Computed example of a mutant assay.
Amino acid sequence: MPNPKITTLIITYNEMDYIQKCIDSIDFTDEIIVVDSYSTDGTYEYLLHHPKVKVIQNPFENFTSQKSFALKQAKNDWVLFLDADEVVPEKLKLEIKSTIENTDCAAFWFYRKFMFQNKPLNYSGWQTDKNYRLFRKSKAKFSDKKIVHETLVVDGKSGILNEKLIHYCYKNYEDYKSKMLKYGRLKAKEDFYKENYFNYLVYILKPAWKFFNHYILRLGILDGKKGLIICYLNALGVLERYKELKRLEKKNELAYHLVMP
């Protein structure tokens, strides 16, 4: 029986600092498709001339819609879905290939090893982080109920791989800050559509709890300066979420009064 074929899917926007390392680590897969949301830093041009990559440009609406679009492009049933700043190490490659040869699982969770400017980030809330990264296209889809930190709905059993995926989460301060603010604004849209209303108490307490939880309870303090920076910026993303929710509610209220006679 021939080995199952794998399609790797990646979505990108201005990932030139990471994409080459990511692509090099997935040369064992049979198809590589990247959906780019009109990068301006050379990412698209690099991918366009890469002999092993098919790149498609598609406007970014949110993470769920972009990943759902990418999933439709895959030819193979087994899909490895990576972020552009993730790398598959050699031992994980071997585990992936041997696992899908004989399994009744429809999807697999991956644990991740977080890297802060090429140095390990061991705590700060990430030590138990795991995500779906490998699954059968015919048995899974992205839920339309979330637009950030998208949720995969799996029809069947799930397993967990032992080897960790490497995630280069932190390039520099401004890049990570921009990412957290973007996530916060998308979460606010999610809240707004679900009719979760702005609350001043939540606005004050949630960011403070996020920092305390990750820096103290989840041992970010043991990561030194790295942990302090990551935990602060994660809390800043939560603060941005509720600031944006308040802004969306005001905008909606203004629009309502403008159309009322």
Rank of each mutant, 00 (worst) to 15 (best):
R185H: 02
S68F: 00
P120W: 08
C105F: 05
Y123K: 09
L94A: 13
D85R: 11
L186D: 04
I166P: 01
K137H: 12
T99L: 09
L82P: 05
K171P: 00
F114Y: 15
A106L: 04
E90L: 13
A84N: 00
D155M: 04
V153Q: 12
C169G: 01
L71F: 07
K141V: 02
K130H: 13
K137Q: 14
I166C: 07
R185C: 10
V79H: 13
N118F: 07
H167Q: 06
R136K: 15
I100H: 07
K182H: 11
A74W: 09
E150S: 15
K72Y: 00
E90M: 09
E95T: 00
L71Q: 08
K177T: 07
I100Y: 01
N122L: 15
L92W: 11
S98C: 01
G156Q: 05
N172W: 02
L121S: 02
L121H: 02
A107H: 03
Y111I: 02
I96T: 11
T99A: 11
Y170D: 05
S158H: 08
F108T: 06
T128V: 06
Q117W: 03
S68R: 14
T103F: 03
R185K: 15
M115N: 07
K97A: 12
D77P: 10
S68D: 10
K179L: 14
M115A: 04
I147R: 12
D85T: 12
Y132C: 14
L94R: 12
A140W: 10
F81K: 02
T151W: 07
Q127C: 09
K130Q: 06
L80W: 06
A188T: 01
L165H: 04
Y170H: 08
K177A: 04
E95H: 00
Q117T: 08
F108W: 14
P89V: 08
F108E: 04
K145N: 10
A84I: 00
D144P: 14
D104K: 11
I160N: 05
K119C: 09
E90D: 14
L121D: 00
A188L: 02
K75Y: 09
Y170K: 08
K75P: 03
Y183F: 10
W78R: 07
V88L: 06
I147Q: 12
F69N: 13
S138A: 06
E90Y: 06
D83Y: 08
S98Y: 02
D85E: 14
V79W: 12
F114V: 01
K141I: 04
K145M: 12
E174T: 14
V87S: 03
D129E: 09
W78A: 09
G184K: 02
A70W: 06
W109N: 13
